[in-house]
Design a protein around this nucleic acid. Sequence first.
RNA 1: GGAGCCGUAGUUCAGUUGGUUAGAACGCCGGCCUGUCACGCCGGAGGCCGCGAGUUCGAGUCUCGUCGGCUCCGCCA
Length: 609
Amino acid sequence: MSEQNFQDDSVYDKYRWIDELGGWRRTHHNNQLTAANMDESVCLMGWVQFRRDHGGLIFIDLRDREGLTQVVFSPEHNPEAHERAHAIRSEYVVAIKGQVRPRPEGMANSNLVTGEIEIVVDEWKLLNTSETPPFPIEDRIEVGENLRLKYRFLDLRRPSLARNFVLRNKAAQSVRRYLDGLGFLEIETPVLTKSTPEGARDFLVPSRVNPGQFFALPQSPQLFKQMLMVSGMERYFQIVKCFRDEDLRADRQPEFTQIDIEMSFVDEQIVQDMAEGMVRTLFRETLNQELPDPFPRMTFADAMRDYGVDKPDVRFGLKLQNVSDIFKGSGFKVFAQASLVKLLCVPGGGELSRKEIDDYTKFVEIYGSKGLAWIKVKEDGEWQSPIVKFFSEEEKAKLAEIADVQPGDILFFQAGQADIVNAALGNLRLKLGERFGLIEEGTFAPLWITDFPLLEWDEEAKRWVARHHPFTSAQPGQLEELDKNPGEALARAYDLVLNGHEIGGGSIRIHTPEMQQKMFSALGINEQEARAKFGFLMDALKFGAPPHGGIAFGLDRLIMIMTGAKSIRDVIAFPKTQKATCMMTEAPSEVAASQLRELGIRLREKKEE
RNA sequence: GGAGCCGUAGUUCAGUUGGUUAGAACGCCGGCCUGUCACGCCGGAGGCCGCGAGUUCGAGUCUCGUCGGCUCCGCCA
């Protein structure tokens, strides 16, 4: 296209005509050219990162997905191309043809892969202009997240964010190669499916054809993958979107991606070996990182005992210690009367200021704690503490021994209900690990958590609910417990934890109708109800379901940890805000009355003043 | 459902005890500039201080409410 299309110069600045590709072909990405390409004629395309207009020479850093290359417009080399280049601005889209040439002596830029060379422009095309972006397309500036999310298409141009998606793709391809190599079939399962009463809230989709009836978006393809095992597919996987209508967190989005896996004729060991291999291969192929073989293992009970949480970050120590016995019958009633007293000893923690301790006290209150007792061990060995005056000499001696107390340490205590004590101290441990720099960045500590309880008590519903899901089988010999002591029965379930995040969870499933019925009755679901809600599962189990089990990984979380991103939003292209809205598209939104009528849906009248 | 932090120029932020005309840096616009690379120099434009009430002679500043973003508790089999 040429200037003749724009006859009205008052509207179209003659330097601002926009051109078509005109048969130009890009020859390289902007991270590719080095001294090895000297004197080659190349064609680059991309966005203008920086413009440095010296009046004479004009330099442009041209950015594409892969990197930056410096481009030079020289008045001597091509006066016409140089003259037009004055009009170039940030984020303009340009195509340049030119020669690779060395930068003058001492002018190389060691920060760039392409820093030894530059492209001197023979000719160039303006492919598009750009308004000044609402925020700089750079990594070094922290922009408000609301702006970033509204202009997500610009945010994604930032190299640090773009890199996350390059890695995410590599990771997904690595997983596919690995699983395909082991004979897994990638099979798609429905997105419009049946609402499941257990578990998270469902996203519902009204059926126009069946007024008053609703599909649910899957929380996971759990039952479908079990059906595929009954179908004899033997090994299934899927990288699949799942949906849960629950409140968001830094590592939780309402729609997220799972690597969903199921296998027939397996026990825990087979599934775990396969999963470990997948994660090890993934880290090797994408980060060039070797993970331990095999992964360390810990029971749920040990995790709660030593770390207070079921997903411990084992990159650092600071284990909790149970000191209940020391204070049985103590004069310090708060400890004596508590069902559980736990201790967290922090070597070198004596340097904590009073304000920091106050902040930590507020922090543990989040978890229902009534307060945070502490003892500072001074350099002379003296114990400084608001509570130590209530301790007997014997109690102090036992405490010093069990905690291996050293001068300069601080001891934190929690006393009371087990769940509050564990949550408070377990989370305080993480904060202190950070505060004292105990966590080495760039290290990865995978850990299997095993022997989960099968059931847990739902205080709100006043009944037992499945801790994992109601299709998880009990460990051998634990069936009797189900009747006598529901809380004690252990499940054939396992979680994979990485750096304190649950990245995967799975189980060996129930594969006989009798066992499944027993499970349902333990959950207070009678036969009739089970038939209505899970009839197809009960049917399927009757027709030769093989023993099977599997695991599902949270791909987003995994990528978040691998990239070091602080939020899952930084590894999801178009994430939702904490209020579960999309700032870019402004979804969700109201719909036309006619759409509602068609669906047979009437909205509640808006409340008037 | 609840708690906390934040909201001032396009962006990132400062703004004292409530007190004249709300500042800085970067960006943007104009001019100059042939080796810069976050180029440099000179000049300029740019503000409903999120929104709404209240207190006050006077509010960016204090109070209440509200909207939005974030973090967390509950929730998330």
